[in-house]
Design a protein around this nucleic acid. Sequence first.
DNA 1: TCACAAAATGAAAATGATTATCATTTCCAA
DNA 2: TTGGAAATGATAATCATTTTCATTTTGTGA
Lengths: 128, 128
Amino acid sequence: MGISTQTMNKSDIKLIAVLERTGGFASAQELHQILRREGDGIGLTTVYRALQSLVDDKIVDLLRREDGEAIYRLCGDTHHHHLVCKSCGDTVEIEGGAIEKWAKTMAEEFGFRDVGHTAEIFGICSKC
Amino acid sequence: MGISTQTMNKSDIKLIAVLERTGGFASAQELHQILRREGDGIGLTTVYRALQSLVDDKIVDLLRREDGEAIYRLCGDTHHHHLVCKSCGDTVEIEGGAIEKWAKTMAEEFGFRDVGHTAEIFGICSKC
DNA sequence: TCACAAAATGAAAATGATTATCATTTCCAA
DNA sequence: TTGGAAATGATAATCATTTTCATTTTGTGA
């Protein structure tokens, strides 16, 4: 019972590999382009299908970018947050230990379970 | 300078009124349908435009449903974060003291100025 | 090895939210 | 009143995602 690892196929594995390589945080379209660029002729449909089944099997997390586009990352990855420059677009990956605790505490306080969170900081970097 | 309340027009006010009346969150499409049902011939384009300007002016909050659709809600002026139920959409406004500190610390560490941040927690509420 | 059914694949079309265009209407100051 | 700016909304365009469906691959039993 439970997670059906049996149903994993080549496409699923390809997607996991790319997510590992890229640090696990990309949209379906981006993942497709990366695979294409690497010479893999995989179709967009298959990318979507594989990602969906990986999400169903709780192997990858599905989050949303600010514009609503779906982004995926491997579960269990220590996930990081971003510090983004509003001017030049430069991005720094940062730790969010405080956030993890905050999210956990708040979720418990209000009786929520199965929780995730998003957090981003944006500002103007020193170069701009 | 600051928030341009001067630029508020009739459509903006209509949207605020509907959001007040309906309470919780609603998508642009839903808000449009409600207004239409009430006999208002407002166009979808205008609904999107009004919502966007209200978001720019920080009069309404923009969040995302699980499928990525944008949902809007009137927000109080105190800066807060959200705890959103992925299942029923129920939302709790929560304090983010830890986040404010985290954002400030990180921004300083990397030399960013004029910083803001976003942070949301999502999960399954006790009722679901 | 062969045949064949089930699973996987991907091109192309469909969908649905959101945004861009643009001609028309409303509003307001001179 | 009038001229121009702002607002409006129908329509078309975008873009991510899903469906459809015909084709290919795969695995398995004979």
